[in-house]
Amino acid sequence: MSKYEIKIDKFKCVGSTLCVMDAPEVFALNGEMQSHVIDANAADDEAILHAAQSCPMNAIILIDRETGQKAWPAR
């Protein structure tokens, strides 16, 4: 099971598709052409963090399941 709970901020996601290209097993675009999570456990933690960090809008929020703390973005 993935270390992260993944959330997409729908006010920030602009549908760049960059996260989808980085981790297509995890992210896909929905009918609004915004990212959504199809399977949070389909890639390793590092790949998920990497995909979140590739988002130019910081729209992908990662919560550490163990601590409940926000792991990304930093601020």
Binding site: K12, V14, G15, S16, T17, P56, M57
Partner: peptide
Amino acid sequence: NPNPHVAFAHGIHVCVGGP
């Protein structure tokens, strides 16, 4: 807040220099 402006556009061409 929220402020979902389109100053950098949206979609695949969203400004790469935005950050």
